[in-house]
Design a protein around this nucleic acid. Sequence first.
DNA 1: CGTTCATAGTTGCAAATGCAACGAAGTCAA
DNA 2: TTGACTTCGTTGCATTTGCAACTATGAACG
Lengths: 172, 172
Amino acid sequence: MGGCVIVPIVDDMSTLPTMTDPTDRFDLDEFLPYLLNQAAEATSHEFQSAYRDRYGFTRTQWRVLANLGKFGAMTARDICAISHIEKTKVSRAVAALERAGILSRTPSETDRRAEVLSLTPTGHSVFAELGELAQGFDQNLRATLGQNEAANLVSILRHLAKGGQGRRGKDT
Amino acid sequence: MGGCVIVPIVDDMSTLPTMTDPTDRFDLDEFLPYLLNQAAEATSHEFQSAYRDRYGFTRTQWRVLANLGKFGAMTARDICAISHIEKTKVSRAVAALERAGILSRTPSETDRRAEVLSLTPTGHSVFAELGELAQGFDQNLRATLGQNEAANLVSILRHLAKGGQGRRGKDT
DNA sequence: CGTTCATAGTTGCAAATGCAACGAAGTCAA
DNA sequence: TTGACTTCGTTGCATTTGCAACTATGAACG
């Protein structure tokens, strides 16, 4: 940043080709997807150490666990729909969590393609522990933001997460 | 917020195991890192098709390009500091962008470990095109949010991105 | 100088991811 | 019933990522 002053090189700006008006040049500092990513990475990465160090979970695994813990037994498909996580990610996370004894699968009685996923007792206690950590972590974040801003943020994010992903089936 | 009154289900709470007070149970729906991720993924993924389809860039590559386009020539280190992208990611993105003729490296005159990165003419024009798309995309998002909420969101996200990642050197 | 420690950037390798393709089961209609 | 089409979930494969070295340079201090 060298505190530059912009001196017009030409007198008649209208002779410049397709150069659009300065006010709508792209501004990375204001680009929402970029800012969202930075904020998401910063916060998630910090909390990640909690589940990674203790249980070796990946972010996706923690997310699947959290959904099951929060909303109860459901199919992989439901998790996809609720969380907007891609189905192959869910599939692999479920496989890993099952190997780790966190959840178990039961064939659905109404649809033989699907399996109902539910936390094992171990899964429940792990969720309880991580949930408590998450809760504390979140409280900290909210404290630094202020409760009003935090509540505001939540509603805006919900809006973005809902409307943001138009196409269906995938998401990541 | 919700103005809830907590009605005890049992008379003697002390008989309940370790179950903490309902008001501080973990609520995934309100967990900021989770919501941030969903919103970030939803918006970024949608915009991703723009640079992936046209140029085959990854998200990281686009981010590096955007930083160079916006802030001008600088070293990889600077990009890391500004964007909070991990240095190996930056390193590989830079290598790829160089191969693609988007940027060029010049040994720093003051530090022989470092290289100054700058966009080539091609890089500038690619940035101009993608920047315009990004601009339009962002306008859309802001329109659905409303300008007030959008401005609000930006300031909160900046706050999170800054404070959020305490430890140094990494980030992802 | 020489020693020690920090920093810029790269690389190896294991793990996570994205995407397309697949098998199996469900749905709908002729 | 058959056939065309959709959906649930998994798998193969190429790409991207994370993390821990590692090289080369710089900086601090005796």
